[in-house]
Design a protein around this nucleic acid. Structure first.
Lengths: 325, 325
DNA sequence: TTGTAAGCGTTATCAC
DNA sequence: GTGATAACGCTTACAA
């Protein structure tokens, strides 16, 4: 691969001059400029961004750590992050932690060594200290890890309220809530707080089922929901904490001979694209994934440029009423 | 951020020595080793991979160009590529082309400037020459762009045969095939060749609908399928070239008052996770996405290391019979 | 308007 | 066992 020296040699000028035309800085005569461009074209020259990064102490890379891109929520998030990162001149390094602490740790070390401009954390299984020792700009998703580290998420309590209230409004008298591991310190667990507050307020019978949010183990969802329906045949409402879980709930209800929404009403969460591929279409709590992507990149940029930014970024949610309720 | 010089200074040795303990090369006394490790820990030192890359002329980065990670097929592909890349010590740069030639071009230039070790191309809207001028190792997905560039895909003709034959075996007498733009030089269009061969062989009535594979424009799918069902109310079989399209076909059939599979039988393609979230579960042609990921990374590695590799990599497909047929 | 030389943080080569 | 020093490809003072 041709270097700036080759171009200089071929066009009979110094490397400085080549660098000047490359970056369009300072004065250069039209003749030299053309000579240099000619040489570049002939050699198929491409400036080496690694050398530039070394000099500028900036890689223009954002590390995106998520549990898994194959989960529709994270795939849509990754899509939006990439979209806005591209607009802002950043590249995105894709890091699936698989919720494996070792792998997550490895990726963090790698991102440090590569001097990334920032890290967007949609997963963390490690101790908070690990992240605090990280000096690059961070944005966390769905978790708080420090007073001065910006976090991003939607109004989970409100989402839980909307979903639960909606089921009750539709007449549900025994509602199951399927959520993630409540021991984890994640903000999405506020959905469960809201669920409890509302069902108690109305004196509605209810139960809570915890599950690990591992999309790989879809069979687990099926088993879980089958057991739920068997033990509590009179359930008439389900509030699931993701659209995928809700999709399985629909499927298992139908399999158990129940009609959706006549016998059991079901609300999902996230409102990913798949919510509208289903038959019946899924009622869901919409999270503004595009805004997540925009803000995440923006919060990194702000930190890089030393501009002021918000620590707590809570975005609004919306109830999307469709055919499962 | 601390450099190797800081570590050398703090531990009272030369940078060479620090580099030695870092890379565990040559002889070093236990005492110095400990001193150096101590200094590193104190300073929170992390070697700068940018400097290393510059020296080694290797970035250990693979660029992954796909239309869109939010499409389930590509999100699963990206997931697998990341999985195997991580195992092989590569990082993955996520590039969504959005099927926009400008953006795709931008990304290719960027990847060149960043001296990536290889590019996995699951999208191309540009002229073949652009890729040939690219000197880094490439693997293309679902397209051939040159005699010496390895390409990866599954047995599309066989997939088309399996799907079509299955519909006919199930008694379908008028089959619609919904596929991508047939003008594009992509290998997946062989599915349509197979479709035509089989329906003609059995003298089954058929029609072909082309659509752009843009998952964003889901509304387009709905309109397309609604029109199809209206114009041809006696259709009793649909072979869609993706599971998403198939999901919409199911939905529109139900909406039009038809039963699936009793009135209309539907086969999708890819067998993404979502095929099993649907009710009824989707019959589909399974592509070995995990093998795609493994082979894609492997083919890059082979090229980087100068080892021999296959040009044509065609993986087997499998018919997954479920509830929509 | 153009060139020389130093430096970004590493590693490799060659001395001692 | 350890240390100077050059080199990787680029940008940027400072000169000319």
């Amino acid at each position: 691969m041709a270097t700036i020296h080759d171009v200089a040699l071929k066009s009979g000028v110094s490397v400085t001059t080549v660098s000047r035309v490359l970056n369009n800085r300072g004065y250069i005569s039209e003749t030299t400029r053309n000579k240099v461009f000619g040489a570049m074209k002939e050699l198929g020259y491409q400036p080496n961004d690694i050398a530039r990064s070394l000099l500028r102490k900036q890689s223009n890379i954002i590390g995106l750590i998520i549990p898994n891109v194959s989960h529709p929520f994270f795939s849509e998030l990754a899509d939006q992050v990439e979209y806005f990162a591209y607009q802002a001149g950043y590249k995105v390094l894709l890091c699936n932690s698989q919720l494996d602490p070792t792998k997550e740790w490895d990726y963090i070390e790698m991102l440090k060594r590569n001097r990334v401009d920032g890290i967007i954390m949609g997963s963390h299984t490690l101790e908070v200290d690990e992240y605090l020792s990280l000096h690059s700009p961070i944005v966390t998703f769905d978790r708080k890890i420090g007073e001065s580290i910006p976090h991003l998420g939607s109004d989970n309590y409100r989402g839980g309220q909307l979903a639960t209230q909606h089921l009750i409004d539709r007449g549900c008298r025994k509602i199951a809530h399927i959520c993630g591991n409540l021991k984890l310190q994640v903000l999405s667990n506020h959905r469960t707080d809201a669920f409890l507050d509302i069902v108690k307020k109305y004196g509605v019978e209810h139960l809570i089922i915890q599950t690990d949010m591992n999309v790989f183990d879809q069979r687990q969802y099926e088993i879980l929901i089958q057991a739920l329906l068997k033990e509590h045949p009179n359930i008439d409402g389900i509030f699931a904490t993701s659209d995928i879980i809700a999709a399985f709930a629909v499927k298992e209800c139908i399999r158990a001979g129940k009609r959706v929404p006549e016998d059991v009403r079901i609300v999902g969460y996230d409102d990913v694209g798949a919510a509208r591929w289903l038959t019946p279409e899924l009622t869901s709590i919409r999270q503004p994934i595009d805004e997540f992507g925009r803000l995440a990149v923006e919060l990194i940029r702000m930190q890089v440029e030393g501009q002021p930014f918000e620590i707590a970024n809570v975005l609004p949610v919306e109830l999307m009423v469709r055919a499962t309720t």
